[in-house]
C-alpha cells in the first residue's frame, strides 16, 4: 500500500478509536472527572488545608500535576489495553490483519487513540482542577512534551499487556497490582524529598516519579528530579516499550497462528 493508503488506514484506526471513546463516554470520560473531583475535595480542600504548603506551594496546587498525570497514565493504558484486547477477543482484529495495513500503522493508530483519550481526560481533570486551584502554566513546552511522552509510553505498555493477555483478568492484573501502586508511590501526593534517604533512592527507580516531576515542573516550576534526567528516562522507556510492542506485533504473538 502506498503512503496515501497507509494514511487512510491510520485515519481509519484513529477514527474508530476516538469514536469508541465518545460512544462509551460514560465509561471513558465521566469516571475520571468524578474521581478527580473527589480527590480535589478530600485530599485538596479537606485534608490539604491542614497539611499547609509543600515546597512553598499550597498542597492542593501541589497535587494537581500528579492527579492529571495519574489520569493520563491510567486512561492511555486502559484505553489501548481494553480496546486492543477486545478486538482480539471478538476477533475483529482480523479485519486489520488480513488487510495490507502495515504493522506500524496498526500500532500507531492504537497508540494515537490511547493518546487521544489520555489528553481528553487530562483536559477534563485540568478543567476540574481549575475550580479548586490557582495553577498557572510555567513551561508550556515541558508540560506538553511530558504529557505526550507519558501518554505514548503507557499506550505502548498497555499494548504489550493486551498482546500477552488471554482473558479479561489478564488486562486487570497490571493496572491493579503494578500501575496503581507505582502511581501512588511516584510522588503524586507528596514530594519524595520528604522520604528518608533510603526510600527516596528506592522511589527514584520508579519511572512515574520522573513523569510527575517533569509535569509538575511544567505547571508549577518545581521538580523532585533534574529535568534532563526526567526526559531521558521518559524517552528511554518510550523507545524501549515501542520497540518491544512492534516486535510483538511483527511476531504476531497471540494474533497469528
Amino acid at each position: 500500500m502506498n503512503a496515501a493508503g497507509n494514511i487512510e488506514a491510520l485515519k481509519t484506526i484513529v477514527h474508530r478509536e476516538v469514536h469508541r471513546i465518545l460512544r462509551i463516554w460514560g465509561q471513558t470520560l465521566v469516571p475520571p472527572a468524578i474521581t478527580m473531583t473527589l480527590y480535589f475535595v478530600i485530599f485538596g480542600n479537606l485534608i490539604g488545608a491542614r497539611i499547609g504548603e509543600m515546597h512553598g506551594i499550597r498542597y492542593i496546587d501541589f497535587i494537581v500535576p500528579g492527579l492529571i498525570m495519574m489520569s493520563v497514565i491510567q486512561n492511555s493504558y486502559g484505553n489501548i489495553v481494553s480496546s486492543f484486547f477486545g478486538s482480539k477477543f471478538q476477533r475483529f482484529v482480523e479485519e486489520m490483519l488480513v488487510s495490507p495495513t502495515p504493522n506500524w500503522v496498526i500500532l500507531t493508530g492504537y497508540v494515537l487513540g490511547a493518546v487521544a483519550r489520555g489528553l481528553m481526560v487530562g483536559a477534563i481533570v485540568l478543567v476540574v482542577g481549575m475550580f479548586f486551584t490557582r495553577i498557572q502554566l510555567h513551561h508550556p513546552l515541558v508540560t506538553l512534551a511530558t504529557l505526550l511522552l507519558t501518554s505514548v509510553m503507557f499506550a505502548f505498555a498497555g499494548f504489550i499487556n493486551a498482546m500477552y493477555a488471554k482473558k479479561f483478568d489478564d488486562i486487570a492484573i497490571v493496572p491493579t497490582f503494578i500501575l496503581t501502586p507505582l502511581t501512588y508511590l511516584g510522588g503524586v501526593f507528596y514530594s519524595v524529598s520528604l522520604l528518608p534517604p533510603f526510600w527516596e533512592k528506592v522511589s527514584q527507580m520508579n519511572p512515574i516519579l520522573y513523569m510527575v516531576s517533569a509535569f509538575r515542573y511544567g505547571l508549577l516550576g518545581i521538580s523532585d528530579v533534574p529535568l534532563g534526567t526526567a526526559f531521558a528516562v521518559m524517552i528511554g522507556f518510550t523507545v524501549a516499550l515501542g520497540a518491544f510492542s512492534m516486535r510483538l506485533l511483527v511476531q504476531g504473538r497471540g494474533l497469528r497462528a
Binding site: 487512510e8 481509519t12 460512544r23 478486538s87 471478538q90 479485519e95 495495513t101
Partner: peptide, 20 residues
C-alpha cells in the same frame, strides 16, 4: 469476526479504510 457493537455501515467503510 466483526465488532458486534458497531454499525454495519461503519464496519464495511472501516474495512475500506484498512485497504487504503
Amino acid at each position: 469476526n466483526f465488532n458486534q457493537f458497531e454499525k454495519p455501515i461503519d464496519i464495511v467503510a472501516n474495512q475500506g479504510g484498512f485497504y487504503g
